[in-house]
Design a protein around this nucleic acid. Structure first.
Length: 272
DNA sequence: ATGGTGGTTCCACCA
């Protein structure tokens, strides 16, 4: 069975519902993981999403900010929401597809929204950066998650808010001191990836020496002309799933849609 | 050097 999944930091699902409709109509992924929905669960546009052909909806949202959601054409066996750093932030959601989705062996999909970390890359003076580092440590230290990466059929996606490789940013040298690309974050991010032996499938397709971005700041006058991007959104797969990886695409054109998110959707296809 | 949210409806806080 072929499964296409998408991940997208949509930066307000209610404001960008028409863009979500366009993405789903044009690309028809089997499942999409959203981040920064900025929407409490009781205000989520479920009816509209069902009308777009996605009858299965899992939500972990809150008022104002953060928030993740999984929309699917295939039914879920289970839904889980995990809290990190003893906060009630809505930053994680996982679903399992199984027999009812036509899969003999279950597949678990994790949707993460890692804290951005603020401006100042010093945990001693910036509690948001301290929170980001603690979150990465906790994610890396989560034994169940690591076990799913090492032994299970699992995919982990989301806005992980770290650009780990030199060519995941427009200028490695100029961003070494900028939150998202600092050595301390990259070290913790890599430790998380190693703990679960996760395969970075985006980089399986695009060599590490080539630039690869998923996010472009709103602050640039012309995002495409300056192309000062970063790869903040990721698709990780456990080895058995990565073995069936068919390809991925960063839908950079969505960054030029009317009233866009500052993140582009990423689509990935697997033969399961 | 922009954009979204929510309450202070213009401004703080977050990304």
């Amino acid at each position: 069975m072929r499964l296409t999944l998408a991940t997208w930091n949509i930066n307000s699902v209610r404001l960008r519902l028409p863009l979500l409709g366009r993405l789903l109509a044009e690309r028809q992924p089997d499942l999409i993981c959203l981040q920064e929905t900025k929407c409490p669960d009781d205000k989520f546009p479920v009816r509209e999403v069902v009308g777009m052909g996605y009858p299965y909806v899992a939500l972990n949202g809150q008022k104002g900010w953060h928030g993740v959601a999984v929309l699917s054409k295939l039914p879920f066996e289970t839904i889980e929401r995990r809290a990190f750093c003893d906060k009630n932030d809505c930053r994680h959601l996982s679903v399992t597809l199984g027999r009812t989705a036509g899969l003999a062996d279950p597949l678990t999909i994790h949707d993460f929204y890692v804290p951005a970390g603020g401006e100042e890359p010093d945990p001693a003076v910036n509690p948001k950066f301290a929170h980001k580092l603690a979150f990465l440590d906790q994610a890396a230290g989560c034994g169940r998650l690591a076990a799913q990466g090492r032994a299970g059929r699992t995919i982990l996606v989301g806005d992980l808010n770290v650009a780990p490789l030199e060519h995941d940013v427009w200028s490695h040298r100029q961003l070494l001191g900028v939150v998202s690309h600092t050595p301390v974050e990259v070290e913790k991010f890599t430790a998380w990836q190693s703990a679960g032996a996760w395969v970075d499938v985006m980089r399986r397709q695009v060599p590490a020496a080539d630039k690869l971005f998923t996010w472009w700041s709103y602050r640039a006058t012309d995002w495409a002309a300056s192309n000062r991007g970063r790869r903040l959104d990721h698709v990780w797969a456990s080895a058995p799933v990565a073995g069936g990886f068919q390809g991925m695409e960063v839908l950079a054109c969505a960054r030029s849609w009317d009233k866009p998110s500052d993140h582009a959707p990423v689509l990935a296809t697997f033969e399961l």
